[in-house]
Design a protein around this nucleic acid. Structure first.
Lengths: 162, 162
DNA sequence: GAGAGACTACTCGGATACAGTCTGTCCGAGTAAATCCGG
DNA sequence: CCGGATTTACTCGGACAGACTGTATCCGAGTAGTCTCTC
């Protein structure tokens, strides 16, 4: 059970888009080139973000993507769920129903106890992802990265922003 | 990203094995019949548990499986990791290294900030699974299930235990 | 009745098959900016 | 010089292919009880 690499790509792309000047757009081509990724396939990840309403897109030349909301308002969970889907990581197939001892008219009072534990863990995971925003990520990067690299990157992006 | 159904099967099997009288074994066949699962494939899940040292096995007739430790000592995480593996759910491919602005001699001081967040969430998930034991599960079931069904199940198991 | 050998029921591991998902590529349709061309 | 037509650069969506993983089945080898047969 490993998250698809599209999740990683989407997160990195959102980090870049967060540093984009207000109202400008950055193309898939630029994002793919920046991260060294296949442009066509990366666009699938960005489409997922677009469908989820996390990014806004414009067609035509100088088109591309920008964040649809403030980075303060965009959590890791939003992005992970946009790409990976919102379904829980554990699905209960109700195999307890096959217990040969169970009377035919037996009605379940609660979800399977095993599923409840697994879902609790899933919720803890999501809660953790919900607690970190892209703005938080930006602040961490600003603190840790060399000033020069940060500035060069911002300039690189702005050069290509439409 | 969905856990394999073998995880669900392994958890249910451990719950049953926890109710087995001391020193007795229960065969794959019985476990498969009880849960309505394909015997051959279920045995793969049990082999995973065996390799991880969570269950003990005996060959020959009246052979089968029993827990290798006390249910108090057996956590959900143990079982999930035995089947699903211990690798983290997020792998960082260091795509930040492709940043065209980065100087060639740049050395990373810390793991990728995005990966750290994802790993933190992964750890929260594992921590939650680590906090629940099979004994806890047994107590929950004893509290919630009808007394008759519980007793019938125990009898059914004991009938087939070798 | 006792002991040796055959038998049986089970685990274990490997081989195989099939389906679904992930990764990656390609192409056509639609759109908006930039460019070109005729007046 | 200006306005409409064309070109260009991009997104979007679908189709497609290959690799990998998850699900499932089958079979042979090995093991430990049980049964049988002989003395």
């Amino acid at each position: 059970m490993i998250l698809k690499s599209q999740v990683e790509w989407a997160l990195h792309c959102c980090a870049i888009l967060a540093g984009l000047p207000e109202g400008r757009y950055l193309s898939t081509k630029a994002l793919a080139e920046f991260h060294g990724l296949p442009k066509e396939y990366l666009s699938k990840a960005l489409q997922s973000l677009s469908q989820a309403g996390l990014v806004h897109t414009t067609l035509g030349p100088s088109g591309g993507y920008r964040l649809a909301r403030s980075p303060e308002d965009l959590t890791f969970l939003d992005i992970v769920e946009a790409v990976e889907g919102k379904t829980r990581t554990f699905v209960c197939n109700e195999i307890r129903a096959n217990n040969p001892c169970r009377p035919k008219d037996h009605r379940e009072s609660a979800p399977c106890a095993i599923a409840r534990v697994m879902w609790g863990a899933d919720e803890a995971w999501r809660q953790k992802l919900r607690s970190v925003t892209i703005a938080d990520l930006g602040r961490t990067l600003a603190r840790e990265l060399p000033q020069a690299l940060l500035q060069d990157t911002i300039d690189w992006v702005e050069d290509r922003a439409g």
